[in-house]
Amino acid sequence: MIPKSLGWLGKQVRSADGRLGSITNEFVGLGFVTLTLTPESGADEVVTLLSNGGSNGSSGWQWLCDSFSGEPFWVPLGNQH
């Protein structure tokens, strides 16, 4: 069974150029999840995370992990092709 959500909705993101935003949509498919990133300025961007560890779509994004070794930390979102 495919889960309905993986918990990405609402996560804070930032781009390599410093734009801040959040994940506003999460589509879970068989072997992938597609995330819509909505920056505070500019158009939405999309990243698809693949089950094999790869990714497609926009690059240069990070997401804010609330507790990475006990403190907040910006983690790359997908491979940064």
Rank of each mutant, 00 (worst) to 15 (best):
S59T: 05
G18Y: 08
I23Q: 04
L9C: 09
I2C: 14
G54C: 00
G10Q: 08
G7N: 10
E40R: 11
W74P: 00
L50C: 02
N56L: 10
T34Q: 12
L64D: 00
K11L: 12
N79R: 08
K4T: 11
S51R: 13
R19V: 04
G7P: 08
L9W: 10
N79I: 01
V75K: 07
I2Y: 09
A16D: 07
G29S: 14
G42E: 10
P76E: 02
E45F: 05
Q62D: 10
G70L: 10
T24R: 06
S22W: 10
S22G: 09
G29H: 11
S5M: 07
F68C: 06
G18I: 05
G42D: 07
V33H: 12
G29W: 12
C65E: 13
G42K: 09
D17Q: 13
F73K: 09
P76N: 11
V13R: 02
S69G: 04
G70V: 05
S15G: 07
S41F: 13
V13T: 15
V46E: 15
D17T: 15
W63D: 01
T48K: 08
L49K: 04
L37P: 02
Q12D: 13
D66V: 08
S5Q: 13
G70F: 12
I2W: 15
N52Y: 02
T34L: 06
G10V: 04
F27V: 14
G54I: 00
S51Q: 14
S15D: 06
A16L: 13
P39F: 01
Q80K: 05
V13K: 04
G53Y: 01
V28C: 11
P76Y: 04
L9A: 09
L37H: 02
L49P: 01
G60H: 02
T48S: 13
S58A: 15
L49S: 04
S59D: 06
L35G: 02
S69R: 08
L20Q: 10
G31P: 08
T36L: 06
S55K: 01
T34Y: 04
L6S: 11
G18L: 11
V75N: 06
G29Q: 14
S51A: 15
F32A: 05
E71Q: 15
P3M: 12
S58V: 00
V75F: 03
P72C: 03
F27Y: 14
F73I: 00
R19Q: 12
L35N: 01
Q80N: 08
I2H: 12
L37I: 13
L64E: 00
G10L: 05
G21Y: 03
S5C: 08
W61G: 01
T36K: 06
T48D: 03
S58Y: 00
P3C: 10
T34W: 03
P76C: 01
W63E: 00
F68L: 07
